[in-house]
Nucleic acid binder design. Structure first.
Lengths: 108, 108
DNA sequence: TATTTTAGAAACCAAATGGTTGCATTATAT
DNA sequence: ATATAATGCAACCATTTGGTTTCTAAAATA
């Protein structure tokens, strides 16, 4: 349960991705967030805890309310992981390109 | 169990990410893949099934061996999801840039 | 043909996951 | 001072997950 959270696991859950989308631009309170789902406020709270633990989200207390907002930077980790494969899919794209241009030539 | 697999869930598991890295450049058989982990071949087989179900990996039978290779294209889905947040973290970076340049000016 | 190799399927299991309800705490409002 | 609102935590539960071991099927080899 306490095992160090990682971003990949955090974004695996569709509800958490929806929360991320919700608070990406404007910070929101748990209550306000929960209104957008048909699960309990407590369930949302748990998701927020997971997102907070892996630093995808930060809290800002304001009176008795807590505003949650996205730490978009943390998503760079996913971006960096993708980087190595981006090269591969671009390579494949170029190969396809070659095939297409060869096809064109042979049609003439 | 059979519920449609999605990429985010597939890459959530560290072993699966390791498998992806292994077969990214060269197709490999389950046996060969399993040698790189200290879990059973069957466990790896299950991971391969999940990766196959969400089309992150494709199989190519060759006699009694089956070669698994990465379908890097599928990772574009993750890339596309990241896209919206990329704008946000770049924006924040630019803001930081502004702050830095203002700091420089005030030092003069 | 008999044996070995490669791989998936099935049955089982412990742990993790995502959800629930109820309770405790703190800050605001009456 | 008391009541209400906002939140997190704990205990509980069903389902999913990742692993194991055993068994089966099919292809290659002796």
């Amino acid at each position: 349960m306490e095992s160090r959270r990682d971003v990949f696991q955090a974004i695996a859950d569709p509800t958490r991705r929806a929360i991320i989308a919700l608070i990406a631009l404007n910070a929101m309170t748990p209550n306000a967030i929960a209104e957008n789902f048909d699960t309990s406020r407590q369930a949302i709270s748990k998701h927020l805890r997971i997102l907070t633990e892996c630093e995808l989200v930060k809290q800002e207390q304001q009176g008795r309310e807590i505003y949650y907002s996205l730490e978009a930077d943390k998503l760079k980790e996913v971006d960096q992981w993708l980087e190595q494969y981006r090269k591969i899919w671009e390579m494949k794209f170029n190969q396809l390109d070659d095939v297409l241009s060869k096809l064109k030539k042979s049609k003439k």
